[in-house]
Amino acid sequence: MLELRLVQGSLLKKVVDAIRDLVNDASFDCSATGFSLQAMDSSHVALVALLLRSEGFDHYRCDRNISMGMNLNNMAKMLRCAGNDDIITFKGDDGSDTVSFMFESPTQDKISDFEMKLMDIDSERLGIPEAKYQAIVRMPSTEFARICKDLGSIGDTVVISVTKEGVKFSTRGDIGSANIVCRQNTDVDKPEQATTVEMNDPVSLTFALRYMNSFTKATPLSNQVTISLSSELPVVVEYKIAEMGYVRFYLAPKIEE
């Protein structure tokens, strides 16, 4: 028996919208720790890891570990039927081939029930080793999204370079080239507007912009994004979900031959 209740139901919508551009079908795992997912994109170049900790839910019951294969577009279709202020309760039963979503309006005058079919998914789980990154950049998530969108209209790849000057995003395409430098800036009115650059060693890596632009679908989840870089390691683009957990995207760098 599985029962998860989330008063801030819109959060679940945002989570699904954050990852469905990258992954079509995924296996959600439920345990005492929380509701989690790990999935690769169809080209096996990027990986998404989601964690919603059990403490973050208003009610969390998970009698035993359970994996549920879901189609994210179908899940989005169901969640789109919930109002933005609705309370969402997600229910599953051992051995059942469906799960259910219940949406309650804040005033309790409308209650909707949706049942969604589960899918059989062969999920391969990857072990992600702890790494000490050469550079960690924290910046406003909207700023990062803007940079990826702007550079995506000029080139296919982005070179992210971190030096003591700050972080530089560069691209090159048929029409020309572009460089955007963001300097560390903590002198701001609100902490979420800050850009911080933590650098142990300078680092410069090349990534496909298509994936970076896909990661920015998670922007509504968090005001800040954390980009962790190390030579010849996948970059980690992390959006923290307040009080609950995170969505982390890993992207393999393009390596010079």
């Binding site: 690769m40 080209s43 096996h44 170049v45 990027a46 990986l47 391969e124 789980r125 990857l126 072990g127 992600i128 080793p129 790849t157 090349t206 496909a208 390691l233 996948p234 890993y250 992207l251 393999a252 393009k254 390596i255 010079e256 031959e257």
Partner: peptide
Amino acid sequence: QHRQFPIIIFFAMT
């Protein structure tokens, strides 16, 4: 010339 490797090259299967 840059080449894109699958992410599995970087992480182990568990």
